[in-house]
Amino acid sequence: MKAGSILLNALLLGVLGAGLTIGQFGRADENPAPADPALLPVFEQFGGKPGIDALMEDFMIRLIDDPRTRDYFAEADQKHIKQMLAEQFCVILGGPCTYTGKGMKETHARLAINEGGFNALVEDLQLAMDMHKIPFRAQNKLLAKLAPMHREIVTRP
């Protein structure tokens, strides 16, 4: 009887624990690069890591060209940002990379970014992805993983 109730408790704890784990990692709150191995075919559509690196070059050019995003990047360490973004995108798409950067909250905490600025960056990324002939549906699979990061990146209002 007692053994049975212990077993039941253990089961309950297990279920609760699993629930909490899903609850914690189901949202991209603090994970700057939520890897999804199922996106490996999308990683290939991006041309692997070399494709992502090449994409970053044109993405950064657009960010600096865009008056809505320019001031956040023009005088920053662009090489480092491109490298971190490439690692981040690579990991998210299930590629064989390690993200060595900081969390989204930490890296954006001192920046004044509103939703319009966040969306401006998305638009610039979409244009860069178009330029690199990345299929629309593949683009959306990446954007679906990046979009929730608005919670850490948008600091205003």
């Binding site: 809505r68 023009a74 005088e75 004044a112 939703e115 319009g116 600025g117 969306n119």
Partner: peptide, 21 residues
Amino acid sequence: HEPSPAERARPDDSVAGSEKL
């Protein structure tokens, strides 16, 4: 803390805007 250029950047806060996707 000495703010970096990026930290000095201010968002476009014009009220009439078109920044939805």
